[in-house]
């Protein structure tokens, strides 16, 4: 079952959902709109699998994302729930501009309460702005006993690159 906007608001008021800061104007019929972080990481790749990350503070005048480049961003809000499962997606206003908010990794773990890392990729060059409304969250009821996520990303603040050493090239380990 997916929560309606009213159910999200009530769960927030009961403390079962964390959205900080919370703004009622960002509530939709069945989701909540989140904002882009103030800085992002551009992923630079040497073509042989070695990655490094360049931090970019997004200027108020905007920053142009380039195609064929991966950027890691974060939600401005601290988001999560111990009771519901979160899925992260883009807003249709942003999808219509060709901006992907994740790379087929839209499912959050229950119990992960953090600024969520977004994986940005554009089809056409697109100017984005710090703290713009960029995506939305949906909340889902779960069935079964709950084991909260205590994995490597569960207290992330800001965009966090891959931390799974088994996925790094041998040079980077």
């Amino acid at each position: 079952m997916i929560l309606t906007g009213q159910a999200i608001k009530q769960a927030y008021e009961r403390g079962e959902i964390t959205i900080d800061p919370f703004n009622l104007s960002q509530l939709n019929p069945n989701s909540y709109n989140y904002r882009l972080s103030g800085s992002i990481l551009q992923v630079n790749n040497d073509g042989k699998g070695h990655q490094d990350f360049e931090r970019i503070e997004l200027p108020a005048s905007g920053f142009v994302l380039r195609p064929k480049t991966l950027y890691l961003a974060a939600t401005h809000e601290i988001i999560g729930s111990t009771k519901y499962v979160v899925t992260l997606l883009g807003r249709s206003s942003v999808g219509r501009l060709g901006l992907f908010l994740n790379v087929t990794a839209d499912l959050g773990h229950a119990g992960s309460i953090s600024q969520w890392t977004l994986e940005l990729r554009v089809v056409q060059p697109l100017k984005v702005y710090p703290y713009m409304l960029i995506g939305q969250l949906a909340f889902w009821k779960q069935w079964g006993s709950i084991v909260e996520y205590r994995g490597r990303y569960h207290k992330d603040f800001g965009p966090v690159p891959n931390q799974d050493t088994s996925l790094l090239s041998s040079e980077d380990k």
Binding site: I2, L3, T4, G5, Q6, A7, I8, P29
Partner: peptide
């Protein structure tokens, strides 16, 4: 998908 909670319809 079935929903949980009061429904307020889209008027965007």
């Amino acid at each position: 998908w079935k929903v949980e909670g009061e429904i307020l319809l889209y008027s965007g």
